[in-house]
Simulated scan of single mutants.
Amino acid sequence: MTDQPAQKTDDYKSTVFLPQTDFPMKAGLAQKEPAIAARWEAMDLYGKLREKRAGRERFILHDGPPYANGDIHMGHAMNKVLKDIIVRSQSLLGKDAPYVPGWDCHGLPIEWKIEEEYRKKKLNKDEVPAQEFRAQCRAYADKWVGVQREQFKRLGIMGDWEDPYLTMKFDAEATIVGELLKFAESGQLYRGAKPVMWSPVEKTALAEAEVEYEDVTSTQIDVAFEIVEAPNAPELVGAHAVIWTTTPWTIPVNQA
């Protein structure tokens, strides 16, 4: 057996004309993004923008706040990123476009989390003083405000993160009471009839979005309403207007 001669390999790299650049082959965004965000924070980019845009036409985005009751998810990310794009674009157009983030720190989603912890410890909500329960809810919300704030900052969202609005701030609650007093003094506050959804299990009021209804199969009906009067089209008298409904129990009080 004879040894095979070593095959010559040609290096064609020098024959390919590629642009010369200092850009790295890999973006490495997972490492670069935190450094960019830290640089923005160190230079107070948001504060500098407020100074540069002072006195310009204002653009205010009223941000519906998320609940402070857990890690953010894709819905949070999409919501905040889209709003950040809007605010930044308005700023690039020369407007004073501040962004004040906020959190909803009240309600059943937060109370429920505390009750879950109670159940793990075999505790009964009704046996805990109301003031203590509220203090625990406040502490829980405060914890998640801090966590979510860092997560939003990691997404590159720019805003006044040092002074967000929180529904549990005492001055915010006082402002709500003050505004309500204005309604009362001007005669615009009145007592009406509107149902307040109540959870007998949680012993708390519910928002309409928190109410879950049992699925019910209802009979659908077709109804023919005879036209007995038609001043502008007398030829319609004796004809019928046909309707279709899946709520037949409303027919007895139907105004037609």
Rank of each mutant, 00 (worst) to 15 (best):
2 T>M: 15
2 T>C: 14
4 Q>N: 15
5 P>R: 04
14 S>A: 11
17 F>H: 10
28 G>M: 11
35 A>G: 03
36 I>V: 14
42 A>K: 12
49 L>M: 05
50 R>F: 06
51 E>C: 03
52 K>D: 08
58 R>C: 06
59 F>H: 11
59 F>T: 11
64 G>E: 01
64 G>M: 04
66 P>T: 10
69 N>G: 04
81 V>W: 02
89 S>W: 12
89 S>T: 09
89 S>F: 14
90 Q>D: 08
92 L>F: 13
97 A>V: 03
100 V>S: 05
103 W>F: 00
111 E>R: 02
122 K>N: 11
123 L>I: 10
141 A>N: 09
147 V>N: 12
151 Q>Y: 10
155 L>K: 07
155 L>F: 08
160 D>T: 07
161 W>V: 10
161 W>G: 09
162 E>Q: 04
166 L>S: 02
167 T>E: 02
170 F>Q: 14
173 E>H: 10
174 A>S: 13
175 T>H: 15
178 G>V: 04
178 G>C: 06
180 L>T: 15
188 Q>R: 15
191 R>D: 08
195 P>E: 07
198 W>D: 06
203 K>Q: 09
203 K>D: 09
204 T>D: 13
210 E>H: 06
216 V>D: 10
225 F>E: 09
230 A>I: 02
232 N>E: 15
233 A>N: 12
235 E>D: 14
236 L>Y: 06
239 A>D: 07
240 H>A: 14
242 V>I: 15
245 T>C: 07
249 W>T: 01
250 T>I: 06
255 Q>H: 14
256 A>S: 14
